[in-house]
Design a protein around this nucleic acid. Sequence first.
DNA 1: ATAGGGTTAG
Length: 763
Amino acid sequence: MNKPLQENSNVILTKITTINHLKQFHAKLIQYSLHHQHYWVAQLIDRCTRLHAPPHYASCIFNSIHLPNAFVFTNMIKFYSQLGAYSHIFNLFDDMHKCNIKPNACIYPVLIKVAGKNGLAFHAHLLKMSLDSDKFIRNAFVNVYGQYGPIGIARELFDEMSERNVVDCNAMISAYWNWKDEFEAKRLFDLMPEKNVITWTAMVSGYSKMKDMVNARRYFDQMPEKSVVSWNAMISAYAQNGYPKEALSLFDEMLNVGVRPNDTTWVAVISSCSSCSDPSLVESLVKMINEKGVNRNCFVNTAIIDMYAKCGSIEMARKIFDQLNGYRNVVTWNTMISAYTRVGMLASARELFDQMPVKNVVSWNSMISGYSQNGQSSVAIELFKEMTSKGIMPDEVTVVSVISACGHLGALELGNWVVNFISENQIKLNASVYNSLIFMYSKCGSMKDATTIFHKMETRDVISYNTLITGFAAHGKGIETTQLLQKMKEEGIDPDRITYVGVLTACSHTGLLEEGREVFKSIESPDIDHYACMVDLLGRVGKLNEAKRVSERMPMDPHAGIYGSLLNASRIHKRIDLGEFAANKLFELEPENSGNYVLLSNVYASAGRWEDVERIRTLMKKEGVTKTTGWSWMEHGGKIHKFIVGDQSHERSVEIYQVLAEMKKKLRTAGYEADKGNVLRDVEEEEKEEMVGTHSEKLAVAFALLVTEPGAIIRVVKNLRICGDCHTAIKMISKLEEREIIVRDNNRFHCFKDNLCSCKEYW
DNA sequence: ATAGGGTTAG
């Protein structure tokens, strides 16, 4: 019965389309005692490869045979090659030698593919064994060099071939596309005497890679015949280049002409659906998947998890994730981790991260960027340090997140360490890396370095411009931002809404009224943030009535930012009536934000109305509103130091309080008197409680004074809300000790020198 | 075939 079964085996095997079928078939083989035969074991393993069965299942089948032959070994190697499990493959190769099994020719292409970046060494090895003349092996090498480079060698091997068939030409075309050589790919395509469906599909995927949708579609439409793979290539082209709707409609067309989708099609379709963020679309797709009995391999399941996570149901995503126990790969884990970090559920993400059996660089990146994007920059940096200490090689994505985290913290020393690390380890510098560097340098106060990086770039994109513009805005350089706006238009880069927020903010902080008006007029459809910038600009230059009019006449409902600007302007220009109006609006919009009470009392203080200041203070106490305190951060010696009100936790606390006391003494002697009106001021209480209630920013400043040499620049970073007396204090210190002090107060820089502060308008 | 990155904010 063995013989006829083998003859029909192809028919039987192609009917196995799910892992459950495979298991049933395996049971049948055991029933007929055929499960020890080389032929059937090899076929089963091949099915495992095609169906993406879990590794333990395949290795269980493999281990059930006593002495595998070349066929079984080859298929098992193919299985591992799909998983990228290189160590397993080389172990199997060694085992073959130990068992004295001569590898047959068809194993070499598999091994060469797997050898990947080590292809060169492997090539030399095969040359020594004089195996390089085999045409399959040559073709495999064209593929390997085409993929990993140098492409010149691929071309040499291709040229040396005595006769080149379609398969060889296809390999070469794919190689050109891989190196984005559109010209050579097209030339070879035009030269080819005969082309097959694979040739045409390679052109579709090639143009898709270049994001050239017009040509991709042109070749797709011109194809004499289309396979499922051709349809997949075109659907994926749409999916990967940001046209999910087109991908889905092409999928409909595919179904209409009667082409049966395979696993790959489903993955592309599901991921298109993820980008549409349309829950009803998700429901109908899931229904279709269930009705059609789609083989839910690991890829399909992972795509489904991602789809649920991106379309709002993180619980559903987690439910499927839990059901896949034992059928997950590293991407499945990463998908779930990113699902959590995207919505800020860092604890859940971290739990999975710590639990996952195998991590890759993406796992680390997801977690690091998760922390960085959710305001936990220092944790991001900690995790990065852990990563490098474990010898895991960061890539360009890692450094982008870490540099951005350094920027948020103002951690310049650490940032420079990362820059050094990048050049030492030859990490690729792409636009994102450059952009993150521009961000970091401008956040750390060095517009010079930021500008240098900006000019170093070969091509700048809208984010490069936005980042630099925002940097100049924070440094009170208005003219520079309008010039950059001009320059980017000349370079053919369209400004977006963030560009305009940056330029308008800069105009506002520099008092460039007319320029700001011009810029605002040039915005096609200004959104609420642009209106907020205009209100801010008008308010700061003293045109308070016009500012209020703009807020009333704009086409959308004002948000807190608008009233915040009005309130701030009222403080600067001592307009009690408008201040009260804006504050009342803010109390309605943000009842939980205690900062608004403080702002209103500052308005009263600016006009010397101390009874009202006192009234607000009592009101705050009565309503149980407490000022939320934040940490102040600074960087010294590559380490981040943080301080909070009444902090005694710093290892140098005693010295810090001594410096603080000296600072006060000096200020007293110099005739400094505290600004009476500032509700944040607690000088008397501090003295009563022996400075336990000291503000975090004062502690940070004291620490900075302690650790830096006189005359050096002090860099105080992050969350420094330097108000009234602290501001005066720093100004006095800079004069007394002849130091330049740079202080960052959220997004603004204040340079204290010679009793001057370069950001005066802010106060 | 599925996963990860850079810019805004009173």
